[in-house]
Design a binder for these strands. Structure first.
Length: 518
RNA sequence: GGCUGGGUAGCUCAGCUGGUGAGAGCGCACGACUCAUAAUCGUGAGGUCGAGGGUUCGAUCCCCUCCCCAGCUACCA
């Protein structure tokens, strides 16, 4: 069984999960679920980035030890992922001993490689860094953050020139190798728009980066002291990014999380870290690179009804409660292109819910099941479905698959669109064949058998193909159709035979909530 | 400022290397049907394909200029 190891970015433990977190996780979850149903042995890794100065500060403000603080945040995130149906296989936390130990291991691996290099080429070296330090932010400021010689965030404070001596990583030495990577394997970073940005960065040339810092100690102690004897804290690059690689050092995960990963799903804002710094680190350590990085876009609360001035905000709880978890997942994945940006609005949510879920799909299920009950006592006739219709369906399914198995990148929205084409085509088929007319004359029984089987088969395929997006609702639909077992066990690369299935009309799958209407 | 990608029906967007008719979904209007969650099916509405030049027998798709929008321009992550 082919393996598919995908990851999402680990979330910074500095606040609660929001719409943006949800988009990434639900999107990656759908990709993971699609692969499971395509027959892959999937390992889906997500987690938390729990170190760093900000976390330590926030914990302090709340008057608790940092570990306790991140424990609570991690629990909140995990509860949200459970609620959203995000079925990860491993949840990694950077404060876990196994991670910290593996970080040391990775760094030592690079030091070991350095031993064979002349001093001027070593990956790790000590260097003094002088920068403008903002006491308010407790961080160094880049020229772009400075306005009129002051920190843009704390204009009343004076920036101090501070010198710090750190371990550095010779990122600049990898410019050519990275260019080569993108030449040989353009698909290393998708979508193309993001790749262009990184290519531009590589053209400009890279600067070396800090590998350790002295100003905070909430993190992994850098394995080697400076020549002065000072032990510093491993900086974020060498702590957070390696989580994908350290996952396999957790007990029981040595095979499941075997490196390299097939796909890193990340937000477009951290593309450079994952496609420049991370591969360079792996090159330095002599480790293989992940096969691909997918940088998704963002979702905003752009609509008027969510304007800040109106004071309208949105919590994930609200978004879930209105129409249910699966409808929310559907809306996110259907309405936001995974390679670009989108915006959340209740207006669009309602449109999508009513049009796609209630009218097109839900009603198709209702009418089909009702007719099978009415005309065939609930048993799907054991005949072949309409060949012509299924030829068209087959083309749609091929499209749906290409949009999620990597062939045409990772676009759940396009996959969903292709499946909805099946539902629309089937509604049209009903109108064209008019089973209620066929039912009036027993002589038409064979034709009616074909029509009813075609309806059940069409729906069964919709259920299987939308299960990665709406696992609970599609399970309900599957059961109404009389499918055995879990719909998530239905293989997408095989046709589904519905002969003899016993359908049962249940409650509408996607009821229109009168109460929610204003 | 520089770089990249965009500006196509009310909305969200497809339109590969230029060629007889500019499309989809939603929304809207009208019509049809009754199996169904007042759902569905059909038809239509007639968008200077951002603006102005140019190349070509012919451009939404090529070139130039301009206008507008978005992203990137590295150590908070």
């Amino acid at each position: 069984m082919p393996r598919f190891f995908l990851t999402t970015a680990i979330d910074y433990a500095n606040g609660e999960p929001h719409l943006g977190h949800a988009l990434e996780k639900v999107g990656a979850d759908a990709i993971a679920r699609f692969h499971r149903q395509l027959g892959y042995d999937v390992h889906f890794l997500i987690g938390m980035d729990e170190h760093g100065q900000k976390v330590a500060q926030t914990a302090e403000k709340q008057g608790m030890p940092p570990q306790q603080f991140v424990d609570e945040i991690a629990a909140i995130f995990q509860a949200m992922w459970a609620r959203l149906g995000v079925a990860y296989d491993q949840f990694i936390r950077t404060t876990a001993p196994a991670h910290k130990e593996a970080v040391r291991r990775l760094i030592e691996q690079i030091f070991a490689a350095d031993a064979a290099l002349p001093e001027s080429q070593r990956n790790f070296y000590e260097r003094s860094y002088t920068g403008l330090y903002c006491v308010g932010c407790e961080s160094f400021k880049q020229p772009s953050d400075i306005v009129d010689g002051k920190c843009a965030v704390h204009p009343t404070r004076t920036l101090e020139e501070v010198t710090e001596h750190n371990w550095f990583f010779r990122l600049s030495a990898y410019t050519e190798q990275l260019k080569q990577l993108f030449r040989d394997q353009p698909s290393f970073l998708e979508p193309e728009s993001r790749r262009n940005e990184i290519l531009q960065l590589l053209e400009q040339g890279l600067e070396d980066i800090s590998a350790s810092r002295s100003r905070f100690d909430w993190g992994v102690p850098f394995p080697r002291p400076l020549s002065s004897g000072e032990v510093q804290t491993t900086y974020v690059w060498f702590d957070a990014l390696p989580n994908y690689w350290t996952a396999r050092f957790f007990p029981g995960y040595d095979q499941k999380a075997a490196w390299p990963a097939d796909l890193h799903v990340i937000g477009k804002d951290i593309t450079r870290f994952h496609t420049v710094i991370w591969p360079a680190m792996l090159m330095a350590a002599g480790e293989p690179l992940p096969r691909q990085v997918w940088a998704h876009g963002f979702i905003s609360l752009g609509g008027e009804r969510f304007s800040k001035s109106a004071g309208v905000k949105l919590t994930l709880d609200e978004a879930i409660e209105r129409y249910g978890v699966d409808a929310f997942r559907y809306y996110l994945l259907r309405d936001v292109p995974y390679d670009g940006d989108g915006s959340f609005s209740w207006e669009r949510f309602e449109e999508v819910y009513n049009s796609d879920l209630a009218n097109t799909l839900g009603n198709l299920a209702s009418r089909s099941i009702a007719m099978i009950e009415k005309y065939r006592a609930g048993v799907v006739p054991a005949v072949a479905p309409d060949a012509e219709l299924f030829a068209a369906h087959g083309a749609s399914l091929a499209d749906a698959r290409a949009a999620v198995d990597g062939a045409r990148q990772h676009r759940p929205n396009e996959s969903i669109g292709a499946v909805m084409d099946i539902a629309r085509r089937t509604n049209e088929y009903i109108q064209r064949t008019q089973p209620w007319v066929l039912a009036k004359d027993p002589a038409n029984a064979p034709q009616l058998d074909t029509v009813l089987t075609t309806l059940a088969a069409s729906l069964a395929h919709c259920a299987a193909w939308l299960a990665p997006v709406m696992p609970e609702k599609m399970q309900a639909m599957w059961e109404q159709l009389g499918g055995a077992g879990a719909v998530t066990a239905a293989r997408l690369d095989q046709p589904i035979d519905v002969s003899g299935w016993k359908v049962t009309k249940g409650a509408p799958l996607f009821p229109k909530p009168e109460a929610a209407k204003e």
